[in-house]
Amino acid sequence: MKAEPFEPKILAFFCNWCTYGAADLAGVSRLQYPPNVRPIRVMCSATVSPHHVLRAFQSGADGVLVGGCHVGDCHYIYGNYMTIKRIRFLQELLEFVGLGERLHLEWISSAEAQKFVQVVTEFTLKIKELGPSPLTVLSKGLPAMALSSPPPRENARAAVG
């Protein structure tokens, strides 16, 4: 049987005032982009809590994309000041536990349909290269990941996967 090509699931949080508008514009302009993103419209990128991102990965997302207004253009003035702090912090934390690169933040205004298409395309490609989230791969064997199968000491590698 031929293996199905890997189609990543990417959860996207798009700000209502900018990136979501860009997605709409891309749609009405009939621009083509990969169908892997599942957008969720939020009122500001700052409403995206680290909890949402972590929950997305826990629930099987292969990547998470956050789109907000350019700095200075946030409709809640300073909202995206918080967004960038949170996401940059999370990117570093995820990197440390081995999930780095799977979270991305981009500023896309409602006029930037081209940029929207480019970001979605590039990010999808990147997640395709990275492959399925190691969490979904590992979780299939999770109950078996018992202490009886320890990681060899020398490379500190857990004996799972």
């Binding site: 999930l99 190691p134 490379n155 799972v160």
Partner: peptide, 20 residues
């Protein structure tokens, strides 16, 4: 010691720890 591991090994390592 963690940063010396590559990405997948880091996930394995932490999942091994966390699942306890």
């Amino acid at each position: 010691a963690i940063q010396a591991l590559d990405g997948d090994d880091r996930v394995r390592r932490w999942m091994y720890e966390f699942q306890k």
